[in-house]
Simulated assay, not measured.
Amino acid sequence: MRKQLLAVALAATATTGLVATATTSASAASPRAHAARVCSAPTSPTVAACDALKLVDDHGTAVSPSGRTVTPSAISGKTPTDIQSAYKLSGLSAGGRTVAIVDAYGYSKAEQDLAVYRSQWGLPACTTANGCLKILNQTGGTSLPRYDNGWAQEQALDLDAVSAACPSCKIVLVQASSSSLTNLGTAVNTAAKQPGVVAISNSYGGGDLADSSYGSYYNHPGIAVTASTGDNGYQGGSFPASSHYVTAVGGTSLYAASNTRGWTESAWSGAGSGCTTLNAAPSGQTTAMTNCSGRAIADVSAVADPNTGLAVYAPSTKTTSGWAQYGGTSLSSPLVASVYALSGNTAGYANTLPYANSSGLFDVTSGSNGTCASWCTAGTGWDGPTGLGTPNGTSAF
Rank of each mutant, 00 (worst) to 15 (best):
D299F: 01
D299G: 04
D299P: 06
V300T: 14
S301A: 15
S301D: 07
S301M: 06
V303Y: 11
A304R: 04
D305S: 04
D305H: 04
P306F: 08
N307W: 09
N307P: 03
T308W: 02
T308P: 08
G309W: 00
L310P: 00
L310M: 08
L310G: 00
V312C: 03
V312H: 03
A314F: 05
A314E: 15
A314G: 13
A314T: 11
A314D: 13
P315S: 08
T317L: 06
T317S: 15
T317G: 04
K318N: 14
T319W: 01
T319S: 14
T319I: 01
T320N: 13
T320D: 14
T320S: 14
S321C: 01
S321H: 13
G322M: 00
G322T: 08
G322D: 08
G322P: 00
W323H: 01
W323L: 02
W323I: 03
A324F: 05
A324M: 15
Q325A: 03
Q325W: 04
G327A: 09
G327R: 07
G328P: 03
G328F: 04
G328S: 05
G328Q: 04
T329W: 06
T329M: 09
T329F: 05
T329N: 10
S330R: 01
S330I: 13
L331Y: 06
S332I: 12
S332A: 14
S333D: 07
S333H: 05
P334A: 10
P334L: 09
L335V: 14
L335M: 10
L335R: 05
V336R: 08
V336F: 09
V336A: 02
S338R: 05
S338M: 06
Y340V: 02
A341L: 05
L342M: 13
L342H: 13
L342T: 02
S343A: 15
S343I: 08
S343Q: 06
S343H: 09
G344M: 08
N345M: 07
N345W: 09
T346L: 00
T346K: 00
A347Q: 12
A347R: 05
G348L: 12
Y349W: 12
Y349C: 05
Y349H: 11
Y349L: 14
A350K: 05
A350H: 09
N351I: 09
N351R: 10
N351P: 10
P354H: 10
Y355P: 01
A356D: 13
A356I: 12
A356R: 15
A356N: 11
N357D: 11
S358K: 15
S358Q: 15
S359Y: 13
G360H: 07
G360Y: 06
G360D: 10
L361T: 07
F362N: 01
F362P: 00
F362R: 09
F362S: 01
F362Y: 15
D363F: 06
D363E: 10
D363A: 11
D363T: 11
D363Y: 11
V364H: 03
V364R: 01
S366N: 09
S366R: 06
G367Q: 11
N369H: 13
N369F: 03
N369M: 03
G370W: 09
G370T: 12
G370S: 05
T371W: 07
T371Q: 10
C372P: 00
A373Y: 04
A373D: 15
A373P: 07
